[in-house]
Design a protein around this nucleic acid. Structure first.
Length: 813
RNA sequence: GCCCGGGUGGUGAAACGGUAGACACAGGGGACUUAAAAUCCCCAGCCGGUCGCCGGCAUGCGGGUUCGAGUCCCGCCCCGGGUACCA
């Protein structure tokens, strides 16, 4: 009897949590609409790829942080948009289909259902009516629509480009999917092969992608990574006439000042001029080198990095500045895809050229003083020497002078170059968005009519790659071959879009997720955009964020969005490691599943621990006993409200003592300020302090207990709601006003002053808050231990910091 | 190599240039209990002493600025992440 009674009123997450999750769902507590009477807050999580493995405890870290903030913002009077969805196209579902014959959409739906269940079990306050799924035809209809807009703007084109061909996967991979010459998934070898591919002209937006980083509230490191990726570099293009040919080699250089030091030239093996200028004596060698370079994978090229290779073409170029003839080589350390695919080599002042010159016995000329070019290249600043008109100038001035000189003679010009390349936008896969277009027999491209979207993925017999490099779609002849009503014949595009496509604009679809007429309403977009806070992993620092910013700018130019940038503020959550301090992985066997944590400790304890571990941005290891600790905190908080023996509510209408009121207001201030700064760990510490303060006391004044329940609710929403209800409230506290603090109440009557002698702590003294400097110094001097040190020398200076400390500076002590 | 982050007790971590280690975990002691669990209370950086007190040493290492530095500046070392022949 007693036993049953004592368990019945204990804090039972297994009972309380599903109850409130059901309440929120049934009452659509977190459904949100545009409301111009409130300030808006758009808080976005990077949506997950719903893998078959389900969630691990790393996923909900960011989700918990944003959820806490959203719940807080709602209580603080904001209209909060907080959506969730699925980035569900991708290779794993297709690989599974190849192995098991299950349609990827089936696997994907099952995975989504599992992810949704797991996410809901954590009590996040998403507006589920806005859920999106990139594989849903109602969604990818608009992904295709955006592609049409890109095409019409001239930003999508077909090019024959050497791509990363993976024979094993039977598909072409993007650079970012190739790691060390092996496929990211599977680790299969990758080689280069030219293929017709869809490209997106992201380079046309290079400058804007770079410039608009300025106004963003993002981590400086991420902005820097984007700048490096775009890689804008200022230099010059210089034309070198080829001796004995009617041909010109144009090079890009960032160091036109070193032009007099150019002692040879290098063309990329794939450079178009190579065939024309190679002498018959060198033909064989050059051909062999070109072939081996073409066959080399990026991995092999990188491996070769230490040792420079190349072949002389037999041709000479003329240095426009002094008429000297210099030999032209081909070498694969010069890349066809960067700059003009050709360089002037200045071995005295470039590390790579120096190494190459050494190996091939080419002359090394000093043109900038300050180093010893016979021992190592001198890449720093200095005075120009052996450089005719440039002699005596410093590097920067020499650059300006030579560019002006070249421009006058039409032998070159100032130029800007980018590391950024156009975006390879097609994949030879089944499980992606089909391109909405037909290639007609006459070579024209016929775009699908917007009203005919989406172009749905057809059913296929087999998900295996066609083997030719084309996607499995190429095998469905009755889908691929089309005859138009007017009799023209064509072939459908069999490539599909890469996984990035769907994630490039999902944050816009959330704004108006069920709109059949348009991708979103422009009016709603104006209300909600930009995203005020975007939280996700740093692994998307460059690509996803750059691609999404690119599409956003195109949509801005088309008048579809009202902001230049999509994500105003970005925060990267840190990695959560396994309990052993290693990266969580199945193979190590240290993966923690949220389902198990919730079953044992409850969702609120899990949320609390995710945040209590340390700063959001830090990498930190999981700890089961740590979860136990925050669960004890929740138990203690619960017992402040509920008599475990009788189930009675302990809260009274008595006024609180001054001391208790002060403790509360201190807590409100700390929690509020920490929430604004996203310092969730210290906010939780402050709540623990209040609970520790209240536990030994008997008073349970309503004003204090209700305020605390509201502070706790964003962190532990189920417990918050339950306690709120037990105090007699009939409705959710999700929209109750956030507590405010009174600065006067936070202030204690007395302050402990630290007393130092020469900066060393020698004592403490309790003084009234409004103590005068004289009184404080006098009291400090009177401390026995302080007086002892003062007696040892001559008092030189007294430092007084109000409310903090007194420091006596003593000479000779 | 270059670009970002980080180095603080046994552990996760706190700390407007002002009492380093809040809050937790693990640990130790006590109360309650026949006992254990749970709960509640207390202790706890390291070293030393005349041990209810006092001193010394302590925030990766070495300097500097300052009355005072985990915090600011300079030079190193180590760890994690990103990136790489980008002319």
């Amino acid at each position: 009897m007693t036993r049953e009674q004592s368990t019945v009123s204990k804090y039972e997450p297994a009972v309380v949590e599903p109850k409130w999750q059901q309440y929120w769902e049934e009452n659509k507590t977190f459904k949100v609409l545009e409301d111009t009477s409130k300030p808006k807050f758009y808080c976005l999580d990077m949506f997950p790829y719903p893998s078959g493995a389900g969630l691990h405890v790393g996923h909900p870290e960011g989700y918990t942080a944003t959820d806490i903030l959203c719940r807080y913002k709602r209580m603080a009077g904001f209209n909060v948009l907080h959506p969730m969805g699925w980035d569900a196209f991708g290779l794993p579902a297709e690989q599974y289909a190849i192995q098991h014959g299950t349609h990827p959409s089936k696997t994907t739906q099952a995975n989504i259902n599992n992810f949704r269940r797991q996410i809901k079990a954590l009590g996040f306050s998403y507006d589920w009516d806005r859920e999106v799924d990139t594989t849903d035809p109602a969604y990818y209809k608009w992904t295709q629509w955006i592609f049409l807009q890109l095409y019409k703007k001239g930003l999508a084109y077909i090019a024959e480009v050497p791509v990363n061909w993976c024979p094993e996967l039977g598909t072409v991979l993007a650079n970012e999917e190739v790691i060390d010459g092996k496929s990211e998934r599977g680790g299969f070898p990758v080689i280069r092969k030219p293929m017709k591919q869809w490209m997106l002209r992201i380079t046309a937006y290079g400058d804007r992608l770079l410039e608009d980083l300025e106004g963003l509230d993002w981590p400086e490191g991420i902005k820097e990574m984007q700048r490096n990726w775009i890689g804008r570099s200022l230099g010059a293009e210089v034309d070198f006439r080829v001796d004995g040919h009617d041909a010109t080699i144009t090079v890009f250089t960032t160091r036109p000042d070193t032009l007099f030091g150019a002692t040879y030239m290098v063309l990329a093996p794939e450079h178009a001029l190579v065939e024309r200028i190679t002498t018959s004596a060198q033909l064989e060698q050059v051909a062999a080198y070109r072939e081996s370079a073409a066959r080399k994978s990026d991995f092999e090229r990188t491996e070769m990095a230490k040792d420079k290779t190349g072949v002389f073409t037999g041709a000479y170029a003329v240095n426009p500045v002094n008429g000297e003839k210099i030999p032209v080589y081909i070498a694969d350390y010069v890349l066809g895809g960067y700059g003009t695919g050709a360089i002037m080599a200045v071995p005295g002042h470039d590390v790579r050229d120096w190494a190459f010159a050494r190996k091939f016995g080419l002359p090394i000329v000093e043109v900038i003083s300050g180093g010893d070019v016979s021992r190592e290249p001198h890449t720093g600043d200095g005075e120009l020497v052996n450089s005719g008109l440039l002699n005596g100038l410093r590097v920067q001035a020499a650059k300006e002078r030579i560019v002006a000189w070249l421009e006058e003679r039409h032998a070159g010009k100032g130029a800007v170059n980018y590391r950024l390349r156009d975006w390879l936008f097609s994949r030879q896969r089944y499980w992606g968005e089909p391109f909405p277009l037909i290639h007609l027999e006459n070579g024209e491209i016929l775009l699908a009519d917007e009203k005919d979207l989406p172009v749905r993925l057809p059913e296929v017999e087999t998900y295996k790659p066609s083997g030719t490099g084309e996607s499995p779609l190429a095998t469905i002849t009755d889908w691929v071959n089309v005859t138009l009503p007017d009799g023209r014949k064509g072939r459908r595009e069999t490539n599909t879009m890469p996984q990035w496509a769907g994630s490039c604009w999902y944050y816009l679809r959330y704004i108006d997720a069920r709109n059949d007429e348009a991708p979103w309403s422009k009016e709603k977009e104006r209300y909600w955009m930009p995203v005020d806070l975007y939280v996700g992993g740093a692994e998307h620092a460059v690509l996803h964020l750059l691609y999404a910013r690119f599409w956003h700018k195109v949509l801005y130019d088309l008048g579809w969005v009202s902001t230049k940038e999509p994500f105003q503020r970005l925060v990267n959550q840190g990695l959560i490691l396994g309990e052993d301090g290693q990266k969580m992985s199945k193979s190590v066997g240290n993966v923690v599943n949220p389902d198990d944590v919730i079953a044992k400790y409850g969702a609120d304890a899990m949320r609390l621990f995710e945040m209590f571990m340390g700063p959001l941005e830090a990498t930190k290891p999981w700890s089961t006993s740590g979860v136990d600790g925050v669960r004890r905190f929740l138990d203690r908080a619960w017992r402040l409200y509920v008599n475990e023996e009788t189930d009675a509510c302990l809260v009274t209408d008595d006024p609180p003592s001054n001391e208790t009121l002060r403790a509360l207001h201190k807590c409100i201030r700390k929690v509020t300020e920490d929430l604004e700064g996203m310092r969730f760990n210290t906010a939780i510490s402050a709540m623990m302090e209040l609970v520790n303060f209240m536990t030994p006391r008997t008073e349970r004044p309503r004003v204090v207990m209700e305020a605390f329940a509201r502070l706790l609710a964003p962190f532990a929403p189920h417990a918050g709601e339950e306690l709120w209800a037990r105090m007699g409230h009939g409705q959710t506290l999700a929209y109750e006003p956030w507590p405010t603090w009174d600065a006067a109440l936070v202030q204690a009557d007395t302050v402990t002053y630290a007393v130092q002698v020469n900066g060393k702590l020698r004592g403490q003294v309790e003084l009234p808050v409004d103590v005068t400097q004289e009184a404080a110094v006098a009291a400090a001097r009177d401390l026995q231990n302080v007086a002892r040190f003062l007696a040892e020398g001559e008092l030189k200076k007294t430092v007084f910091v109000k409310g903090r400390m007194v420091n006596f500076v003593v000479a000779g002590a």
